[in-house]
């Protein structure tokens, strides 16, 4: 009895410290987002408050000026936002298809050059990608997919090389017993039928994972997007246009507007992520095990 209660007390104490640690961690982790949201409600109008960087978090006056600015017609923000949504949508769609194709082929079929291909792609991934930007730019330019066509160009480049990111998905397919398709094959089903009618229906988590990861990447693409869209405001994405607000001298005092734009970017991505978090966890876990 006495031992049990001491155990209980011990556990209560350790849980208490656990909660303290978790609360501290949560505060640290959420602080930038709270700061971002609060910053977005600070006016940039000189008569009210200052729109640059300040050393306090809570705005002195609450205002919607920044949202009015980004959503109003003063900039192309809505256009940039739309561009990013379009890019993210198509990249997610095509990249998912390609990854599924590659993963199925590599997981289920044995053909000459299979391991060689996997190793080759693996090695390719170690070459720093930024160096090849200028080369990609001129390739795309030759196809008319820069500046005005930059959105299509960005989709093409993201999709074209996506086959190399098959690891996680192939790992998932590897865990589906091979006996399943062998039985179907004996019944006369073709490889394609096995793929479409057996494997895909039970791969929902990994399909969603692949699409989700692909959907989130374009929101971050600043470097390459600015490289191939330069000089053509209408084909920028949000990252390109908003990065300017933070880092170009022409945009002094745009900090709070950046915050507002950032909040608007974060909302859909965060919501989507929260809804699909379960699948993401499955993907991350499975992917880690198989590497």
């Amino acid at each position: 009895m006495a031992r049990e209660s001491s155990m209980k007390r011990k556990r209560a104490v350790s849980n208490f410290f656990g909660y303290v640690a978790l609360i501290i961690i949560t505060i640290i982790w959420l602080f930038p987002f709270v700061g971002l949201v609060l910053g977005s409600f600070r006016s940039y109008d000189a008569a009210v408050e200052y729109g640059g960087i300040v050393d306090y978090v809570i705005p002195k006056h609450f205002s919607l000026d920044n949202y009015r600015f980004v959503l109003g017609g003063e900039t192309n923000y809505l256009r940039w936002y739309g561009n990013t949504v379009i890019i993210a949508f198509f990249v997610a769609l095509f990249q998912m298809i390609i990854i599924l194709c590659v993963s199925y082929a590599l997981s289920r079929m044995r053909f000459a050059g299979r391991t060689a291909l996997m190793r080759f792609w693996f090695v390719l991934g170690m070459f720093p990608g930024f160096l090849t930007m200028i080369c990609l730019y001129f390739l795309l330019k030759e196809m008319g997919l820069t500046q005005a066509g930059a959105i299509k160009g960005l989709i093409l480049v993201s999709v074209a090389s996506s086959g190399m990111g098959y690891y996680v998905c192939k790992g998932y397919f590897d865990t589906i017993p091979k006996a399943l398709d062998e039985a179907a094959r004996i019944d006369g089903a073709s490889r394609a039928r096995v793929f479409f009618e057996m494997i895909l229906p039970i791969s929902k988590p990994i399909i969603i994972y692949a699409a989700l990861v692909a959907f989130m990447a374009p929101w971050n693409d600043y470097i390459f997007a600015s490289y191939i869209a330069f000089g053509h405001d209408a084909s920028y994405n949000v990252a390109v246009s908003m990065y300017r607000w933070m880092n170009t001298g022409d945009y002094q005092g745009y900090f709070t507007r950046f915050c507002a734009g950032g909040v608007l970017v974060a909302i859909p991505v965060t919501l989507l992520f929260m809804f699909l978090q379960k699948y993401y966890v499955e993907g991350v876990t499975g992917g880690a095990v198989k590497g």
Binding site: P32, F33, L36, M216, W219, N220, A239, Y243, F273
Partner: peptide, 8 residues
């Protein structure tokens, strides 16, 4: 993870 890195 959800909030784009260029923002955060």
């Amino acid at each position: 993870i959800a909030v784009p890195q260029f923002v955060s």
